[in-house]
């Protein structure tokens, strides 16, 4: 795939990402992500929202280089990372990304201080320098007084701060955070998100945050909605996480595909699966006008949709004619 100049300048460019997990025994394979495309600029703060099981964490892990996608490609400033092995990913992990887990994932047998120092030592920073930088970062995050405690002795908020410190100390270009405030109370959540925002503002660090939290998502410049492994819409600052329908903007993928939320699909399916699209200008605004085609005959049957490719199918077929997925 040849990247354009603009594409090469994107912090993250992801195309057609799939994540398929093999089913155990008789159970079916699980398609966690299905044809995800993402463009992210330097310094953007994006949140990923969606119901449980929609593939948010999988997406974050894949974009963060912690997991290989089943298909698709990922570029960081034009450099592809999808085919790199573990050792080749190391410079990328050191220089580009920081990852904050929901659980913190600190090394339980090292103190908070050593958890941060260790990151710098891995990057080849000299011992004294590493210690100094770690102390400074922990101080900045307000937990210097607890830096010699083991993780088991820290509160949830303190642990999350240590995890953030561990990430920040390397000054990454983008921070991936998977439910960073999921285990925190309101006060700590505020503190953590405040830190993120400060970084975003001061260091121009990009953020990709997975969240369920209304409170967290309001910090994002934009929010992308993920459902059943697909981006179905984008939300702005006016997003209400409890009622995404209100603020959803339908996302037209770079390759021209359009993903509609399931509710909308069900509504439209009554009218068949063939539609006429036209772009209509009304004043300064442009609209897409969609009209069902005269013929959209599916034999008068009640329409159902393939769970994988979302195309309309006849249940009696037993199998989707488009992608071959089982309908049983």
């Amino acid at each position: 795939m040849e990247l354009t100049e603009t594409q090469s300048k994107q912090l993250i460019l992801a195309r057609n990402l799939y994540a398929i997990y093999k089913g155990k025994g008789d159970s079916q394979n699980v398609v966690a992500l299905s044809g995800i495309n993402l463009d992210m600029k330097d310094g953007e703060f994006i949140s990923i929202v969606g119901p449980s099981g929609s593939g948010k964490s999988s997406l974050l892990r894949i974009l963060g280089g912690l997991q290989n996608p089943s298909a698709g490609r990922i570029f960081y400033h034009g450099n592809e990372i999808t085919k790199l092995d573990e050792d080749a990913l190391v410079p990328f992990r050191r220089n580009y990304i920081g990852y904050v887990f929901q659980e913190g994932n600190l090394i339980p047998t090292q103190s908070a201080f050593m958890n941060v120092v260790q990151t710098l030592r891995f990057a080849g920073v000299e011992r004294n320098d590493a210690r100094a930088r770690a102390t400074e970062t922990l101080d900045k995050l307000g937990i210097k007084h607890r830096m010699h405690a083991l993780p088991s002795k820290l509160s949830g908020g303190e642990r999350q701060r240590v995890a953030i410190a561990r990430t920040l100390v390397m000054k990454p270009k983008v921070i991936f955070a998977d439910e960073p405030t999921g285990n925190l109370d309101y006060e700590n959540s505020e503190a953590v998100m405040g830190l993120f925002k400060d970084l975003h503002r001061e260091e121009n660090t990009a953020f990709l945050v997975v969240t369920h939290s209304k409170h967290t998502s309001k910090y994002a410049d934009r929010s992308i909605e993920l459902r059943d492994g697909r981006f179905v819409g984008e939300h702005g600052l006016d997003m209400d996480i409890d009622d995404l329908d209100l603020s959803r903007k339908v996302l037209i993928q770079p390759d021209g595909t359009l993903n509609l939320p399931l509710e909308m699909l069900k509504l439209l399916s009554m009218y068949g699966n063939l539609w006429d699209f036209s772009v209509v200008k009304e004043g300064d605004s442009h609209y897409i006008k969609a009209t069902p085609a005269e013929v959209s005959d599916l034999g008068g049957h009640k329409h159902e949709f393939c769970p994988v490719c979302k195309k309309a199918v006849k249940p009696s077929d037993g199998q989707c004619n488009s992608c071959g997925a089982s309908l049983m």
């Binding site: 912690l66 573990e86 050792d87 994932n105 260790q118």
Partner: peptide, 16 residues
Amino acid sequence: KREIGIFKVQGADSKQ
């Protein structure tokens, strides 16, 4: 195993 995974997230290469 988990610790090794976290080290990798921290930027450790296999040699380290």
